[in-house]
Write a protein that binds this DNA or RNA. Structure first.
Lengths: 159, 159
DNA sequence: TTTGAAACACGGACCAA
DNA sequence: TTGGTCCGTGTTTCAAA
């Protein structure tokens, strides 16, 4: 799928504010509504636009703690990776889990109500996973920047 | 602001799929459409629903590399924190920047097209910031889990 | 909570460049 | 192939019972 400049403009607008209507966007990219709508549809069908979601305020929901946990699996545990991935998927407090290169195996982003809730999660679930050898937890104190907007400027993308 | 069970159900639905209409949601939470719509509006006005965004497919956009960078500022650099935060905010490839407790000061999540693009970003921007003393970069190989859905189940929230 | 009306957005048919 | 105009349908939004 190839994306021209107009497509990228549309994507940039939508990943900033998905409540914009097709005609709002049409106006900003100098198109009339139907062709603009067709482009959006096409981007959705191609999967470039994965989904539309509401972002909630963590603080207002009382979810005050974000922890980054670096996890190392035991040597034999690496055979049962699917099991580990399955278990991680089942913990709603784990927002992200990435396999990383370097001195540890996974980086997890975890959100809980407070430190106590994290401690419980850590003790009863994370450290209980049979494959886990070692976990280093680092609590985040403040969010300097946090966005879901991917960089779409020229030169950062393959088109 | 207090949230009852119905509010939390609405939030759970919207943070999974913001394309649901007010009547779709009304149906699933056993309400008629207008009161359901009023609740959504109220949640938006209170800021619990911060915004609605489109999530794009990183791979399809050719953004194949995610790097987590651990940054340490120089001792005197900690005075000019606002400057650092400003500069971070201006780099679109930096999606997240958290202040963390522990052996380093910040954790950054960075997305680029490929390793070369990261190297350029690292050399020309990140390592050039006058306040930065040390950066450890860890490339993420695969995404096991990645979601923007906050955990809303009972007991995880203050209501 | 239900009804309903006005405004608006969506999405198809069809034509022009 | 891509954009434009026209128009029917459904949704949102909000007032009134």
């Amino acid at each position: 799928m190839k994306l021209d400049k107009t497509d990228r403009k549309i994507l940039a607008l939508l990943q900033r504010d998905a409540s914009l209507s097709a005609s709002d966007i049409a106006e900003r990219v100098n198109l009339s509504q139907p062709p603009c709508w067709r482009r959006i549809k096409r981007l959705e069908e191609a999967g470039v636009i994965q989904r539309r979601v509401a972002l909630l305020d963590q603080r207002l929901l009382g979810l005050n703690v974000t922890v980054f946990a670096r996890v190392k699996l035991s040597a034999h545990g690496k055979k049962s990776l699917p099991e580990f991935e399955q278990q991680i998927g089942d913990i709603p407090e784990v927002l992200e889990c990435h396999t990383v290169m370097g001195d540890y195996d996974f980086l997890l982003k975890i959100v809980t109500r407070d430190i106590d809730a994290y401690e419980v999660l850590f003790r009863t679930r994370l450290s209980q996973m049979p494959t886990v050898q070692e976990i280093h937890s680092n609590a985040a104190i403040s969010r300097i920047k946090i966005t879901t907007e991917l960089p779409l400027e020229d030169g950062q993308l393959k088109t």
